[in-house]
Simulated scan of single mutants.
Amino acid sequence: MAELDAFPAPRSTRLELETDYTLSRSAIRQFAEHGFVKLKNVLSAETIAAYEPEITGKVIELNTQPEPLAERDTYGKAFLQVTNLWQDSERVLEFVSSPRLARIAAQLLGVQSVRLYHDQALYKESGGGVTPWHADQYYWPFSTDRCVTIWVPLQETPMEMGPLSFAAGSHTFEYGRDLPIGDESERVLQEALAEQNFPEVSEPYELGEVSYHLGWTFHHAPPNTTSIPRRVMTIIYVDAAMTIAEPVNANQVADLAGWMPGNEPGDTISSPLNPVLY
């Protein structure tokens, strides 16, 4: 259950999260062709400042990583990961429920309505390592590819901080979809994507700039060589009419149980954790 916030976000920032963002035809076309798109000025500096302290505080409070950075494996060094923060904070619930962000997802996917799958805070610590090449949908038991992640940096993110990088057009590439994130996916996909001439798009993010990428778009991120954490909030959206596929690996079994409790393969997603957001 989300906690009531004694200091609610200013009305102006809540209003921004409810106001439509003008998405250009070229952005929709780029998303369809490349499997991702970066969008500038989606959020104002004021809105990010209103929600970042609460998100960061919940990451610190709820993080369960016990090992020092140097003692973790490659995946553990990539980032601190805390999921479904919206269940623990009214302020985060406002952010995750944003009609502005969800409407963009629906427009890019070409669907009438989207549901929440779950949220993830991904904080790459100072000295945090590479995020290996992977595709998110390896973990998700969905019947179609109509699912998308928004990646929202909570600060300006230069290359030294480890911004997300994409293999443009790789959402059409089926090789490597059976690889979980780790050393093998980094090695195998780095080579395979280069052989197929998928351009790697690796650029900094301005404050307020966000990206949306499809579940099958391969992506990774470089290390954080700065002295401060790279703070990122993500939200995963799915077509509201999405049906659940039979899980094909243990991770999908766990995701079905954890993120869609009470649902079964063949069902339309309808658990209490998956409300319609737009």
Rank of each mutant, 00 (worst) to 15 (best):
A45W: 00
P180Y: 13
T144C: 00
V253D: 15
L189D: 00
G208Y: 10
Q190W: 13
V276F: 07
A32I: 11
Y278N: 08
P141S: 00
V42Q: 01
M233L: 05
V92F: 06
S89C: 01
G128Y: 04
S44P: 01
H213M: 09
R100G: 04
D178F: 11
L39S: 02
Q155R: 13
L101Y: 04
M1E: 14
S44R: 05
V96Q: 07
C147F: 13
Y138F: 15
E61H: 02
Y51Q: 07
S126V: 02
E184P: 08
H34T: 11
I55H: 01
T225A: 13
N274P: 06
F173M: 13
E191D: 15
G57C: 02
Y138R: 06
P53N: 00
E125V: 06
Q137M: 12
Y205R: 03
Y123Q: 09
R231S: 12
Y21W: 14
P153S: 09
W86C: 00
E54Y: 05
E52P: 07
T172E: 14
D136W: 11
A240V: 06
E90Y: 04
L80F: 05
D239K: 08
D178G: 13
Y21G: 06
R115H: 10
E191C: 13
S185L: 11
V111Q: 08
P163K: 12
G266F: 03
M161F: 13
E174T: 15
A167R: 14
D255R: 14
T217R: 11
G57I: 03
E46M: 05
E71F: 00
Y278A: 10
A257G: 12
E200C: 14
G262C: 08
T172S: 14
V130W: 13
Q252F: 13
L80R: 01
N224L: 04
G215W: 08
P153T: 07
A245E: 14
L277V: 08
W86I: 04
G110H: 06
L80V: 02
P272M: 01
N263V: 04
